[in-house]
Computed example of a mutant assay.
Amino acid sequence: MTENQTIRLFHLPFSFMLPQRVAAERGYFTDEGLDVELVERDRADVDWKYIPAEERLTDEYDVDLYPICKWESLKRTWEMRDGRIVAKGTFADQPYAVFTNRDDVEDGGDLANVPVGVNKRTGQEYTAIRALERHMDPDEVVIEHHGMPTDRLRALRDGVVDAVSLLEPHSTLAERLGFTRVFEFENHMGMVGAEELDRDSLVRFRRAYARAVRDINENPDEFREAYLSMLEADEDVAPDLFEDVDVADLRAEIEVPEYETPELADREELDTHLEWMKTRDLIDGEADIGRIVARGP
C-alpha cells in the first residue's frame, strides 16, 4: 500500500471506538501519511448490527481495516475469508455488564439456564458465554438474540427476556430504568486488515491512534459530547426508553473511560481463544490460526 493511497477504515459509533474518530478529525492519520476515510452506517438504518453478518467488509465494502470483537474476528477471518487479524485489545476501560429484571438473581450463578439477551454475530455472544461459564457449567449457559442495545433494553423492560448484556452508556441507562447489575466482564476487541494492508501502514495507524488515546485520557471532559453521541442517536430511534429518565442527569453521571491503543495480534494467545471456540463448536474444527492472523514483520 503506497503512502498516497486511501485507507478505508470501518468505524463503529460505539463509545469504545472514540479514539478512531478523534484521530481522523484531528488529522493524526494525515500526519502519519495516511489518507483515512471513515466508512460508517447511519444508526437509523441499523436494525441488527453495524457489521453485516453475511457480507465481507474487505470485499463488498472495500474496507482496508475494521474493528470487531476478538472472537468474531476469529470466526469472520476463517469462515468468510474477510481479511486477517492484525491487532487486539480491550480498547477502553469499559466492561460489559449483565442486567436482570428479576429480584431472585443475586449473582451470576443464579442465571444458570436463564436466557441472557445479546446481539448475535457481533462477537459479544462469545464474550458473554465465556463470562457466564465462570459462574456456571457450560451446558447451563443460555444466550438469545435480542438485537441492538435499545432492543435488548426493551426486551428486558417488557419481560421478553430476564437478563441482557450491555456496555456504557446503556449500562447507566439500564440502572436508571431500575434494572439490577449482576456482574461485569471485559470487552475484548480485534482489528482485522485486508490482505493488501501492509505492516508499515498498520504501524502508522497505531501511532495516530495512540495520539488520540493520549488526548482523551489527559482531558476526558473535552470529549464528553463526542462520547455520548451514541446515546443521543439512540434517544432518537428509541424515545420510549427515555420517557421516564432525566436525560440531563443521566448524561452528567456517565464518565468518559480511559482508553488503550490496540496491540499487535499475538498468534499464540489468539490460538488459545480459537481452541476454546472449537471445544464449544462455535467455529469449524479445522480452523487454522496461521490462516487467521496476519504474518509478522
Rank of each mutant, 00 (worst) to 15 (best):
S229P: 00
G108I: 14
D288R: 09
P138I: 11
E60G: 07
S171G: 15
L12G: 00
D284V: 01
R121A: 10
F91Y: 15
E125L: 03
L132Q: 10
L65E: 09
H135E: 14
L264Q: 09
R181G: 03
R204A: 13
E60D: 10
R157H: 02
H135L: 10
R157Y: 02
R267I: 12
R199Q: 15
L166K: 01
D62A: 13
L274K: 06
E268G: 11
L12M: 10
D246Y: 06
V141P: 08
V141E: 03
L132C: 12
E195N: 13
R204I: 00
T6N: 04
T180N: 14
E286N: 12
A238I: 00
E72F: 03
P239I: 07
R157E: 08
D110F: 13
A44H: 02
V86Y: 02
A23D: 08
Q5Y: 09
P239H: 08
Q5F: 09
P149S: 07
V247T: 11
K88N: 08
D158S: 06
R280H: 14
G285P: 00
M189Q: 15
L9I: 02
Y227G: 06
L111G: 07
R56M: 12
E222W: 00
R56D: 10
V192M: 09
G123D: 02
V160G: 02
P257G: 05
D215S: 12
V164H: 10
E258S: 15
V63Q: 05
D200P: 01
G178A: 11
F29G: 03
A163F: 04
E222Y: 01
R199E: 15
I7S: 00
M17P: 01
R121N: 13
L173V: 07
K75P: 00
D266S: 13
I289H: 06
R134D: 15
M80K: 14
V182I: 15
G33F: 08
D200L: 11
W48Y: 12
L111S: 07
E79H: 12
V293E: 11
L250E: 07
E32W: 03
L65A: 11
G89D: 14
D234H: 10
N113T: 04
D284I: 03
D45Y: 00
E225H: 09
L167D: 05
G159Y: 04
A131C: 08
P138E: 11
E60A: 15
E263W: 01
Q124T: 11
L34M: 13
E125W: 08
T127P: 01
M148V: 01
F16K: 00
I289Q: 07
V46Q: 00
E196A: 12
T279P: 04
P169V: 12
R84N: 12
E175H: 00
D284N: 13
A294K: 14
A92E: 01
I129K: 10
S229V: 04
E3N: 07
E106N: 10
F16L: 12
H188F: 13
G108P: 09
G290A: 06
R267F: 03
E258M: 06
E37K: 11
W48P: 01
R43K: 02
N119Y: 00
L241K: 12
H188S: 12
V86C: 08
G109L: 06
T77E: 09
H170N: 12
T150D: 09
Y126D: 04
L228G: 05
G27N: 04
K278M: 05
G33D: 08
L173Y: 01
E269M: 08
